[in-house]
């Protein structure tokens, strides 16, 4: 059954697939960085004593988590040009969407991370006369972040897989590149198999790295 596969089309399309993969990776990195920063702020808002801030952050996180990502991508793609008055490309729109969407998921992780730091640490900060901001940035957040590195990276693997969904607005990521290459050579089957293999190898190697890291990062208590 595999005899009809023609794998010779893969080698010449590699440079093209690489440009697609570069976009996927760029999108993942941008959304991860932006998402973690925004997510940390959301987590701090949810844990703050201000009811308004906590309520708003909770509403945002719950909203994002109960809508399918595909719908969020469509929403942003529709709304950004309406709000700014300029058409933005699918690629830029996807970056903003993923940052906003992933922030909700990262914020849940960071919230768990912050709550995993023992109360005594905050009290120690207070006792030293540090302000809230100093306690957070020098004492709590570094520990929370360290505890959560494996979970944050696992979320990033999911994020990397989800970037394939930009397909719906036609952004040129790895999957789209494979589809185009498949059409050009009239060999879609080989391309789909190859692209699935690419995702698989990348994701499983990253998850092995996470497993190793988990052992190293763990704080001995």
């Amino acid at each position: 059954m595999f005899s009809t596969l023609d794998l010779s089309v893969i080698a010449p399309s590699l440079p093209f697939l690489w440009t697609g993969l570069q976009y996927s990776l760029k999108l993942t990195l941008v959304a991860m960085t932006g998402g973690i920063i925004l997510g940390t702020f959301l987590a701090l808002c949810r844990l703050s004593s201000s009811r308004v801030l906590a309520g708003a952050a909770t509403a945002y996180v719950d909203l994002m988590r109960s809508i399918p990502l595909v719908m969020v991508i469509l929403w942003f793609f529709l709304l950004i040009p309406l709000m700014t008055g300029n058409p933005v490309g699918a690629e830029t729109s996807a970056m903003l969407t993923f940052t906003a969407f992933e922030a909700a998921y990262y914020s849940e992780i960071m919230r768990a991370g912050i709550q995993s730091v023992s109360r005594g640490q905050v009290a120690a900060g207070d006792a030293l006369g540090l302000t809230y901001r100093q306690t957070m940035s020098y004492i709590v957040l570094p520990q929370a972040f360290r505890n959560m590195i494996p979970v944050l990276l696992t979320q990033t693997i999911i994020l990397f897989q989800d970037t394939s969904l930009v397909y719906i607005i036609g952004a040129k990521d790895l999957l789209k590149a494979a589809e185009i290459a498949g059409k050009n050579y009239n060999r879609p089957i080989e391309m789909y198999i190859f692209v699935a293999l690419c995702y698989f190898v990348l994701c499983i190697s990253l998850s092995l790295v996470v497993k190793q890291l988990q052992k190293r990062v763990a704080i001995v208590r």
């Binding site: 897989q161 989800d162 394939s164 969904l165 397909y167 999957l175 789909y192 692209v195 699935a196 995702y199 698989f200 994701c203 499983i204 998850s207």
Partner: peptide, 8 residues
């Protein structure tokens, strides 16, 4: 778990 749902 390691192949995106859309690709699957």
């Amino acid at each position: 778990r390691n192949i995106p749902l859309l690709v699957q």
